[in-house]
């Protein structure tokens, strides 16, 4: 069922829950991986995903289809996650520790990380990126979203996104060269 049909179903009396469950079914996994690659921890990703869907549920009646449903959901998920990371960074700063270092430790101890050493270093390089660069890099590199879609999600111009991706790419490459 495409997004238009899902939204029409959602607007039918008494079918909101059913339609929304179909939306969760369609986009849940994709959004989970998007969040997970930003926060690393499964527990945090799960909490943020649920929060994303609760917010989407409350806001969906006001959704005017000015953007596509999946970019709209991505936007909610990304905003939720970036807000969470900002708070976590502030908390880490106040306790005089480094948030990136915390994430790296978390990654090393994560029972749900299955990658080899090179993948581990690659993930650590991504974690060292500034927040928005990290989000842009992940959406482009892993999710293979077009710059136009990322622009719709982030509200940033395509040119700025290309520059952001390029900077992220350079930084990761440098880190990999130094580390591997």
């Amino acid at each position: 069922m495409d997004d238009k049909d899902l939204l029409e179903l959602f607007r039918e009396e008494g079918k909101e829950n059913y339609a929304f469950n179909l939306i969760v079914d369609k986009y849940g996994e994709r959004l989970y991986w998007h969040i997970r690659k930003l926060v690393a921890s499964h527990e945090d990703a799960n909490d943020l995903l649920q929060e994303t869907f609760i917010k989407a549920w409350a806001a969906l009646p006001r959704f005017r289809e000015e953007s596509r449903l999946y970019t709209w959901l991505y936007r909610i998920a990304t905003n939720e996650t970036l807000t969470f990371i900002k708070k976590a960074k502030l908390k880490a700063f106040l306790s005089l520790s480094d948030y990136s270092r915390q994430l790296e430790n978390q990654l090393e101890a994560d029972p749900y990380f299955n990658g080899d050493n090179t993948q581990m270093i690659f993930q650590k390089a991504i974690m060292r990126l500034p927040l928005k660069q990290k989000a842009v890099f992940n959406m482009r590199y892993f999710d293979e979203l077009s710059y136009e879609d990322i622009s719709e999600i982030s509200g940033t111009s395509v040119g700025a996104l290309k520059a952001s991706y390029h900077h992220a790419y350079q930084k990761i490459q440098e880190y990999l060269k130094e580390t591997i």
Binding site: N17, N21, V24, D25, G28, E29, Y32, W33, R36, K37, A40, H42, N46, L49, Q50, F53, I54, D110, Y112, F113, N114, G115, D116, Q119, M120, Q123
Partner: peptide
């Protein structure tokens, strides 16, 4: 490189519902 606990996605959908 990341994985999830077995049956997580079904569980997540049920939790959201």
């Amino acid at each position: 490189p990341f994985t999830v606990p077995n049956g997580y996605f079904n569980e997540m959908k049920a939790q959201v519902a």
